[in-house]
């Protein structure tokens, strides 16, 4: 089999699949939409539902800008299909708060200047909210000294290891860590 053969196979693939009518529970609202099965959850949010707070930075799971919460867990919306998430509870940055009623984590990011251009910010914030729940559940991380210990202390080292899947090219990292620490210490999460 040559490269041109596989190219031909690739090209020959796939009759156009009919659009799927799906219901997604987003930010406590049921939204109905018709999507191509190929539509990522990220593109469904941004291009179909016009919830563009969730950002596309790489589309390949390498930057974290598209992080949303699904059933309370942080995941990358670029690497999952919209059709796979009927019956799930999806929370996006828009659902966490709005400018007049910000979530404590959003307030902490503003107060600590945890961003500059703002493009990775929704992903950082959703990731931080999901991350704190993971710490609360006692999940270990790569910097946890003893993974067999059921409890994890929320040190700065733990925060930054656990947030490493969210790249900030403006490099607001120290301020983001401060925001998360402040938010967690505030106990409002």
């Amino acid at each position: 089999m040559s490269a041109s053969d596989t190219h031909a196979m690739r090209r020959g693939q796939g009759e156009m699949a009919p659009p799927s009518a799906i219901k997604l529970n987003i930010n406590d609202q049921v939204r109905q939409l018709e999507v191509d099965p190929r539509t990522s959850l990220l593109d469904a949010l941004r291009e179909h539902l016009r919830l563009s707070g969730t950002k596309k930075g790489c589309d390949h799971g390498q930057c974290g800008a598209c992080t949303v919460l699904i059933n309370g867990r942080r995941v990358l919306s670029c690497l999952t299909l919209a059709v796979m998430h009927e019956d799930d509870e999806i929370m996006t940055i828009e659902g966490l708060g709005d400018p007049d009623h910000m979530h404590p984590m959003q307030r902490a990011f503003v107060e600590c200047d945890g961003f500059q251009c703002g493009y990775c910010t929704p992903g950082q914030i959703c990731s931080a909210v999901g991350m704190l729940a993971e710490v609360k559940a006692g999940w270990p991380s790569h910097v946890t000294t003893d993974v067999s210990s059921p409890r994890v202390a929320l040190t700065d080292d733990e925060i930054r290891e656990r947030m490493s899947g969210n790249i900030c090219r403006c490099a607001a990292y120290p301020n983001i860590v401060a925001a998360i620490r402040g938010s967690a210490e505030g106990g409002a999460i």
Partner: peptide, 19 residues
């Protein structure tokens, strides 16, 4: 099997491991 736990948390990111 702490070696398994350590290997898992050294890979990818929290978001990817959740999926």
């Amino acid at each position: 099997y702490p070696v398994l736990s350590e290997a898992l948390v050294s890979g990818a990111s929290g978001q990817l491991r959740n999926k």
